[in-house]
Write a protein that binds this DNA or RNA. Structure first.
Lengths: 233, 233
DNA sequence: AAGTGGTCTAGACCACTTG
DNA sequence: AAGTGGTCTAGACCACTTG
């Protein structure tokens, strides 16, 4: 039941990177060095390096060596993912801090975006998501109560709004825009970054069969987050 | 200059699939069969099968074999668009300013990203695109000369690099990441924004059938540009 | 010249699936 | 029992990069 040797080597390299012993741009041990360090054949050490390169963790170049790639997390533009899953999948710990979780009357803009009347009660949450204790996303979410009447009763310590909502009102459609903004003092405080530092702001409207489910404004520190996508034509 | 043997095997399998000799669900030859058919070692035949599986062409299962996968859904949710067309479509006027348009030897990073050798000549352009006279995108583009040998002869006043490149080397694949950065003094000057204002930076690598075509770094003023997408599930 | 990654061989033992 | 893919070895020659 032991894991393959190439997997052990991958894990060792990965943890050196997450621990900061290897920084982006650093050269990692060569195939031959790893083979001798871990007492495996070069082909096995090579496989570890190749797979890490495939995963975007390393860059390799003939004659030069293998180098640590930009380590910022990258999530896909083309799919809607649960931030907690994303973090867990990277081998990190997700935690979050619920700043607000309440109902309030819709102002005209929110009402319009959710397809409700101004003044109708809507649900609103403000949550900071953390990766290994460091803030990675501020989620400001406005929810259509017709689509998720029990939203307020949810405890978001173990389940994200995104996960809950897609369970009660399966996603059929989403609209989003991505922009670069400067952190105002609120965002700066919540994300633990300097005021006026660059942030990636994703504004997303999600739909289920019966209409608009929620509006999310997701703000990420620019130096700790990237959005990535891979397209085939 | 001959291609590796595993590539030959991949091509053979691929063409059998496109010609219809192998249909989705069909089992392809096993590692051992391919090894003997092509007179290579099992490891080499194996590599061909592994890479095709990685690319989504095959599905493999221990004890069972390798099977042709179902035709993949085209998930081109985010599309690569030509900035000039985009602007024109909005009813505005596109213009551009070519800051640089030259050839130079590749440093090791560019070489790695383009799949070339360090020191090989590559093409490079720096262009500012304007919408109704106001800068909207700074395009720093590095081009693989093998894919577009006449790149330097192009006049970008009426045709963007993107349009030219997709004409001479049709896009088959693209990889991109999106991040929020602060304008440095160069970018600030080119985009006519204040230094340290937020910008959206898109790093895109485009591929045609034969390999990497170009690497583009597209920088947009955060307050004049957004990326949007609409998804259906 | 010494080191790097890229390709390749001819073996080996294993876990898994089917007949 | 025979065949499949999964892991691994200990070699080899090559192209490429740097000093």
């Amino acid at each position: 039941m032991s894991s393959p040797r190439y997997a052990t080597i991958k894990e060792a390299l990965r943890s050196q990177i997450t621990q900061g012993l290897l920084a982006p741009g650093d050269r990692v041990s060569s195939e031959n060095q790893l083979a001798s360090e871990f007492s495996v054949s070069r082909m096995t050490a090579r496989r570890a390096l190749l797979e890490l390169a495939e995963e975007g963790v390393l860059l390799r170049s003939q004659g030069l060596g293998s180098f640590v790639a930009d380590t910022r997390p990258m999530s896909s533009v083309t799919q809607i993912r649960n931030i907690a899953e994303e973090i867990t999948q990277r081998g990190h710990r997700h935690s979050c801090c619920v700043l607000q979780h309440t109902e309030l009357p819709a102002d005209s803009l929110s009402a319009m975006q959710l397809g409700l009347n101004t003044g109708e009660l809507i649900f609103h949450s403000d949550i900071v998501h953390m990766e290994d204790g460091l803030p990675i996303q501020h989620e400001s979410r406005t929810v259509n109560p017709r689509m998720a009447p029990d939203y307020l009763a949810q405890d978001f310590a173990n389940n994200t709004p995104s996960a809950y909502l897609s369970a009660v009102a399966p996603l059929t459609e989403a609209e989003q825009s991505v922009e670069a903004i400067l952190a105002d003092s609120d965002i700066a405080k919540n994300l633990q970054v300097k005021k006026r530092s660059p942030c990636l702001k994703i504004t997303r409207r999600t739909f289920s069969e019966k209409g608009v489910v929620s509006l999310a404004i997701l703000t990420h520190p620019g130096d700790r987050y990237r959005l990535g996508s891979h397209m085939n034509f």
